[in-house]
Design a protein around this nucleic acid. Structure first.
Lengths: 188, 188
DNA sequence: CGCTGCCTTGATGCTGATCAAAATTAGTGG
DNA sequence: CCACTAATTTTGATCAGCATCAAGGCAGCG
């Protein structure tokens, strides 16, 4: 039997830091956690937004090489890595989660390699729509403009300008506090 | 006992295509294979350069979603995925390989998010140096300028100009047919 | 020796970063 | 509920860096 511990964290609370010992695997039960790296020059690269049912990292021992921080209120479940690895159900789950992360990373690489800022941001919205949003078509954006910028490799000003333009052109419509809907083709 | 099949491919030969059925896992024994995606507009995004001891993909069933092509003469070993997955030694190896790919993808994301072309290309050379090169300090570049461009998200002209500049400034020195050595700081 | 593919170099223009400031939103306490 | 402050977002003006278009050079191979 795996000993799982559960905890709830408020929005914008660190989950762990780079350099922390990786003793436990962490699953997000509710909410969204961002995984990121920090650089000497102060830049922050957001690597992934992790949501319900997904594992935060795949470091089974040694030190963590990245940061994790809640961007909404989150509920987390931790389990000791060594125990999880030897449990067949957990092992299968870990396997599947690693494949999911590989797919998301590939998509992220593709996003970042896009030539224009509009293409990158459009792809970002599609990704978020696929992963974090309601099936009705609304896009939930729990993250700030700065966080979007740090994921897409753009500046906050460029992100803001594109949102403004798309909303002016009615390609993107506000449907709630943090929700939007795509009405037309964005990339243009 | 896992039934492994071995084959040798010439430089610039396709290993598999997107859409192919993923029945086998493929390990590179010798040489370098590039893994990439193609887009409607003709762009090619190179996702990884896979070298000796590494697995090409982690798709255990269904259709492959990317292409693989030898960029040097390569020796490959294939094994049926289902058999490999149930073999404990292979399972452990697959696990470790997935973690390696995750790390490389993260590094690739970091590279692509770099602001300047010089920073991207410098990071690329460091990565290649770490992964494909001799321990003496020489950097082996088995790939073409176009392939470097398609990995770093730059154009071939920009890549060429940076190489020229660095060589003019003696930061980078040619030590062989396809080998270079870094003499100073590149990023500048 | 000439052809083909790859690489280099040059000139120009556009896109998005940067700097700066205004506008809006969120947060706090009375 | 409102006033006040802080944080976030938006908008504007300017400019550098890289993509693009266009030639020319060079190596490999018949």
């Amino acid at each position: 039997m795996i000993q799982e511990t559960r905890r709830t964290l408020a929005s914008h609370t660190p989950v762990y830091f780079a350099g922390d010992r990786a003793t436990d695997l962490v699953r997000v039960e509710r909410g969204v956690v961002m995984v990121f790296n920090l650089f000497e020059d102060g830049r922050r690269q957001i690597v992934d937004f992790v949501t319900a049912g997904e594992l935060l990292h795949f470091q089974f021992d040694g030190e963590l090489d990245h940061y994790a921080e809640a961007i909404t209120e989150v509920e987390l479940v931790s389990a000791p890595s060594d125990a999880a690895l030897s449990d067949p159900v957990w092992a299968e789950y870990i396997f599947q989660q690693m494949r999911g992360r590989l797919d998301r990373d590939r998509r992220h690489v593709t996003l970042l390699a896009q030539k224009s800022a509009a293409e990158r941001l459009a792809e970002f919205l599609i990704i978020v729509s696929d992963r974090l949003s309601t099936p009705i078509g609304d896009i939930e954006l729990p993250m700030t403009r700065q966080e979007i910028a740090d994921y897409t490799g753009l500046t906050i000003e460029t992100v803001s300008r594109l949102f403004s333009r798309w909303m002016r052109e009615r390609r993107l419509v506000v449907t709630g506090k943090r929700t939007y809907r795509i009405e037309g083709a964005l990339a243009a």
